[in-house]
């Protein structure tokens, strides 16, 4: 198949970017979207041009590195699919595909389609953990956990930190990302101990980093490659509210 591409090119964070148009022939529908870009880059390099910078690593949908805004959707037109898992058979012959980087104040562009998502690490550093030292854990089965609760915690824990929720949200809010981590720990007895402090610290950090507010648009859930539910956002709201109302002074 032949396709037309319109790709955002930007030399670095401080220069202005623009779209560039490419035509690509003999694309196999069996190619993944990123293999298609590899194919484009090979032609660009051999033609003496600079290849398109895009981020990727595992290429099997689990590391969360890849993330392109394709034809108006983070990770492209297929639901529950990361960019690397998306294949060209999802596109039509002759189609024009517009590829943009994640757009958010909190995710500045580094080069072309690569953005800086370290804001997520900063939120995690603010409290996305259980305060326990190596060696002090009790025997694992001393903490029985209801299967349904444990499964639910798993559903929240599958987040790959790709940032599609922020990219999809009209307010570039990071609520789904933060809520997934807050909920995973709040559900489990191991994490419950410090749930009130955790949610306040993580929300405070999220606000500080320039993400927008949540307006319950639910685009995040729709475009999350792992299908994380907005119910976790409600759970975080709940945790936050009770933390604010019940926490003692000095916390």
């Amino acid at each position: 198949m032949d396709i037309k591409l319109k790709i955002w090119r930007q030399k670095n964070a401080s220069t202005k970017g623009r779209f560039e148009d490419y035509e690509l022939r003999d694309v196999s529908p069996e190619m993944s979207f990123l293999e298609m870009l590899d194919y484009l880059n090979k032609q660009l390099i051999e033609g003496g041009k600079e290849p398109v910078t895009f981020e990727h690593d595992c290429r099997e949908g689990i590391c969360g590195t890849c993330g392109l805004y394709i034809n108006g959707r983070p990770h492209g037109p297929q639901q529950h699919t990361t960019t690397c898992e998306l294949h060209m058979r999802a596109f039509k012959d002759g189609e024009t595909i517009v590829v943009e980087p994640w757009r958010s104040k909190a995710f500045p562009i580094i080069k072309d389609l690569a953005v800086d998502r370290s804001a997520f690490d900063k939120i995690m550093n603010a409290g996305g953990f259980v305060n326990i030292d190596t060696g002090s854990a009790p025997e694992a089965n001393n903490i029985p956990i209801n299967k349904k609760i444990s499964d639910r915690a798993f559903d929240a824990a599958v987040c790959i930190g790709c940032g599609a929720c922020v990219a999809a949200c009209k307010n570039s809010s990071a609520m789904l990302f933060v809520a997934a981590k807050v909920s995973q720990f709040a559900l489990l007895p191991q994490g419950k101990v410090e749930a009130a402090e955790r949610v306040q610290r993580m929300v405070e950090k999220m606000d500080e980093l320039g993400f927008g507010f949540c307006s319950n648009t639910y685009a995040c859930e729709f475009d999350c490659p792992k299908g994380i539910s907005v119910e976790f956002i409600a759970q975080m709201n709940r945790e936050f509210l009770s933390a604010k109302l019940c926490a003692h002074k000095g916390h």
Binding site: F129, T134, A137, E139, S150, A153, F154
Partner: peptide
């Protein structure tokens, strides 16, 4: 034991 204490949701 340690992973469980860290909140790793094993089956």
């Amino acid at each position: 034991d340690h992973f469980t204490a860290l909140g790793v949701p094993f089956a």
